[in-house]
Design a protein around this nucleic acid. Sequence first.
DNA 1: TAGTGGTCTAGACCACAAA
DNA 2: TTGTGGTCTAGACCACTAA
Lengths: 250, 250
Amino acid sequence: MHTSMPPQDSISRASKVPLYYQLYLLLRRKIRDGVWQPEDMLPTEAELVERYDLSRSTVRQALDIMVNDGLIHRRRGRGTFVAKPTIEQSLTRIISFWEDMQRRGMKPGTKVISSEILPAPEDVAEALDIEAGEELASLERLRLADDEPMSIEHSHLVHHYCRGIMKNDYANQSLRQMLEEEYGIRIVSAKEKIRAVPATKNLANLLDVDVKDPLLQIERVSYTDRDIPIEFLRIYHRGDRYTLYTERKD
Amino acid sequence: MHTSMPPQDSISRASKVPLYYQLYLLLRRKIRDGVWQPEDMLPTEAELVERYDLSRSTVRQALDIMVNDGLIHRRRGRGTFVAKPTIEQSLTRIISFWEDMQRRGMKPGTKVISSEILPAPEDVAEALDIEAGEELASLERLRLADDEPMSIEHSHLVHHYCRGIMKNDYANQSLRQMLEEEYGIRIVSAKEKIRAVPATKNLANLLDVDVKDPLLQIERVSYTDRDIPIEFLRIYHRGDRYTLYTERKD
DNA sequence: TAGTGGTCTAGACCACAAA
DNA sequence: TTGTGGTCTAGACCACTAA
């Protein structure tokens, strides 16, 4: 059996991860875990400087990211506060299935369909800008919402950057979190193609719908902070259960 | 007559506008005006420090905003460069059907199905944050790509803000352009809901597909520069012909 | 090796909000 | 008046790129 360590509430100077980013992850987790509730005041910048033994600039650098994420807002003269998690807030952010379902007030669940290392097919290789045949870590999962099938997710990672990642069990584990915490790989942007497609026999079976029923297909290429394509993801959402929210700006 | 001053290439210490923001505006203008072309290298941070007599942090604060805007990208060890205004960059922009089709290399066409003033139905009223029954300018159009049906667009405008707008012919005219040029209304942001739905008999007929064929449904609420919801748009794209491209950032 | 951006520090003064 | 975040400075050392 494996016990997972409780996330540390400290910053490691030895780590390769920048201090401001460690602090960002740490504070973000406290908000996601509900340690700080919406509208709660965060510790002041001075307190964070003290608590984690960092300079104010470094603390502000972490907070800047969170402001950008829409996780917090600052009020001069008053303090820094956890933002209200409206759906609209993060419409264009990349969020995990888990987070997505919780926002929708549904109970998320996952079944792993397959997990393997395989050579890259032509289309995936092209999307990831690698050679066909190069090693991919492939993970296929059925996603459930309130115990009903919601979507099929097939993820392809460039194995070169994350060797050994498929040794883990991803029924209760976020792939993105693993990438970030074990491999230091941050996914910061993604491009998506969205289509309405009819369910194939196989998909219909897995999703418990009829053949030819409309599915929302999303193909996503995710990029690291260095703009390296790291993951190709193909999702099929049940058309009758899933709505995608997004936001556009001029 | 008025002569416009050439924009100053300097930072004012007397101004109430923060130095980093003045620098941001200044650099942004140079890019927009084409002084620096895509892929051109910007002055190094050290040069900007020198040129405008600022500290490096202040310079970086300005550049941070531009990175966030997607205007520039930094490459460690190399320099800072003007970003390419690729299609991808504007994936989240609101573009017209016309522009959309031209990017895809297809010939756009339009047939007006209906054009009328009608009282707001419940669902539309709610989306636009008005009272049910309030007057709407309603425009329904069939969109063609290379002379084949591509999508159905049903637009609902809050008539109060654009009286008389339905007197025009929108077979060859952009609704957004009309709003902007005749009514001074600029649409700057929008929220969308995206679903995969089966074609109804009516839609199947108009789009020349089979009943129950998958369609990509988009419901869009558009907002003016003052954050007033002005338009509710419902689009059905043929699943076999239309792919939506979008981009997400953390 | 020289030059770039990435990270971090220790300070300073200011504007604003609340008591 | 006190405490908050907002702005700004002058440094330092590091990691990466290109010559």
